[in-house]
Amino acid sequence: METELRTLTARLLAHRSIPRSDALARRALVDDSFRHALDNRLASVGLQLLDNPYAAHIAVGLAEDMREPVFGQGREYAASNVGLTRDELAWLMVIWALIVLPKRERQVNRRSLHDDGQNDMFGAETPVEHGETVSGALSEASLAADFGNRLGGKTKLNFALGKLARLGFIERRGGQVLEGPLLDVLLDYRILADRVIHGTLADVLAEAGHRLPAANAFEQAQAAQADEDGEE
């Protein structure tokens, strides 16, 4: 087990994220003794494993008690500990809301992007899906048209998207923005979803013609994620 622990820890640190379908990632998620040993190893250097059952990847991050000692001396920590400006953080939140919130609604209802809910009588019994079967894409041109006037225009959007892609939050393909490996694992749905759906950003998105899940769908997703977290 020692070799597997060293390998998984090194890979997490080197690559920042690992697909949950990876053999060692799966072992960390289903083998209690292996997970306990991994948690202890990460905790010894101020880190913790980041995972939620709806994210396609696992990652590592600072333990909560280490955030202030590590980042607290930098002035930028109040906004971001990955060097994002306020405008870039705003673009990140818009993209997160437009990709992750609808994705979570599909995952909870066990539906794919092209499923109207009538094809599978036993959909609730199927495993949670990850990846592009449930995670939609956004047009860069549409993002610029819908939100550019509020967030600095096409030039700032292009710069922000490049930065978000380098950080692993998104992927860019042929003018489309897709979910990156860290978008759903680093940003906590349980905290952010309520603030988005019941906050000012919901009004901004609605003005641009984007539908967010209804409050009852959000509550269902919260309860489902709590159940999934307890089972895994």
Rank of each mutant, 00 (worst) to 15 (best):
A14P: 03
I18Q: 06
L24T: 03
A25S: 13
R26D: 08
R27Q: 15
V30F: 09
V30Q: 14
D31R: 00
S33T: 15
F34M: 08
H36A: 15
L38V: 08
L38C: 01
R41C: 07
R41Q: 15
L42K: 03
G61L: 03
L62D: 02
R67W: 06
R67C: 12
P69I: 08
Q73T: 09
R75K: 13
E76A: 15
A78L: 13
N81M: 00
V82G: 02
L89K: 08
L89T: 13
L92W: 04
M93E: 03
M93S: 09
W96G: 04
L101A: 00
K103R: 15
E105S: 06
V108K: 00
S112C: 11
L113W: 11
L113Q: 04
D116W: 07
Q118V: 10
E125H: 09
V128C: 07
E132K: 11
G136D: 12
S139F: 02
S139K: 07
A141P: 09
R150G: 01
R150V: 03
L157I: 00
N158V: 06
F159L: 12
A165G: 07
F169M: 02
I170N: 03
E171Q: 14
R172N: 05
G174T: 05
E179Y: 10
G180P: 01
P181C: 07
V185H: 00
L187C: 05
D188T: 02
I191D: 11
D194Y: 03
H198K: 14
T200G: 11
V204G: 04
G209V: 04
L212A: 02
P213C: 05
A215G: 05
A215R: 07
E219L: 04
A223I: 12
D227L: 12
E232D: 13
